[in-house]
């Protein structure tokens, strides 16, 4: 093989490395969607998978709108706007009975993958960590903690920002002893996950509870 071919191969590698810098991140999908769907929605007959990114729905403008509702800016590593999130629309026959959707969130010791199952109004019917790196991971993954989020919707998060003493969300306590940061990251990730669901699928029905002056 001639030297020109070797140079050609090297140039291909360099070209693809440079393209790779431009096109990057990988989203959050379920490891075993069929098993999760059967477990969470026993009446389901199938599901539809859709991949949605913030770029495909509104780009920078939508990013700013989500950040305003989240009360925080996006993390450069975990929250690129080209990341495609997997949305699983759960079906019973052709009737939609719920959704499952995951999100990558920075944690104290690495990335978390927070998976929510919601009903048609966006209330949480199941929550679990598909991935969490923490010395107290067992405490976060325990159903005594995760079940406290059942029934909560984006309305609770918006109202909690206005008065954090009376909401259901305020009753949920940090399960860890030394990793409060991971508890706060979990709340942030769940809120962002619900905001994106509200934007992508629910026609922003929870926006009426959002007060821009109260988010911080």
């Amino acid at each position: 093989m001639s030297k020109s071919n070797i140079k050609y191969f090297i140039s291909l590698v360099l070209l693809n490395i440079s393209l790779s810098v431009l096109w990057g991140a990988v989203g959050c999908s379920l490891n075993d969607p069929d098993r999760d769907v059967i477990r969470i929605f026993p009446a389901s007959t199938n599901y539809k998978t859709e991949y949605i990114s913030i770029n495909s729905q509104g780009g920078e403008e939508m990013q700013r709108e989500i950040e305003a509702r989240l009360g925080d800016v996006f993390d450069e590593k975990f929250e690129k706007t080209d990341v495609e999130y997997s949305y699983y629309t759960i079906l019973k026959g052709s009737e939609i009975i719920g959704r499952i959707h995951g999100l990558n969130q920075r944690g104290r010791f690495g990335g978390m993958q927070l998976i929510l199952a919601t009903d048609l109004e966006g209330r949480i019917v199941d929550f679990y960590y598909q991935k969490i790196s923490s010395p107290e991971a067992d405490k976060f993954k325990a159903i005594e903690f995760t079940n406290q989020f059942l029934g909560i919707s984006l309305q609770d998060f918006y109202e909690n920002a206005q008065d954090s003493t009376k909401t259901r969300l305020a009753q949920i306590k940090d399960p860890s002893q030394e990793n409060r940061q991971d508890f706060e990251y979990t709340l942030r990730g769940i809120k962002k996950n619900l905001i994106q669901l509200d934007f992508f699928f629910l026609n922003r029905i929870h926006d009426k509870y959002f007060n821009p002056e109260k988010e911080n």
Binding site: F9, L12, V13, N16, T45, N46, Y47, K48, T49, E50, L91, G93, S94
Partner: peptide
Amino acid sequence: KNSLGFEYFRKLTQQQGD
């Protein structure tokens, strides 16, 4: 070995699901 590769992964869906 030293390599360049790709993966094309696609789910096809209809009204009754994937």
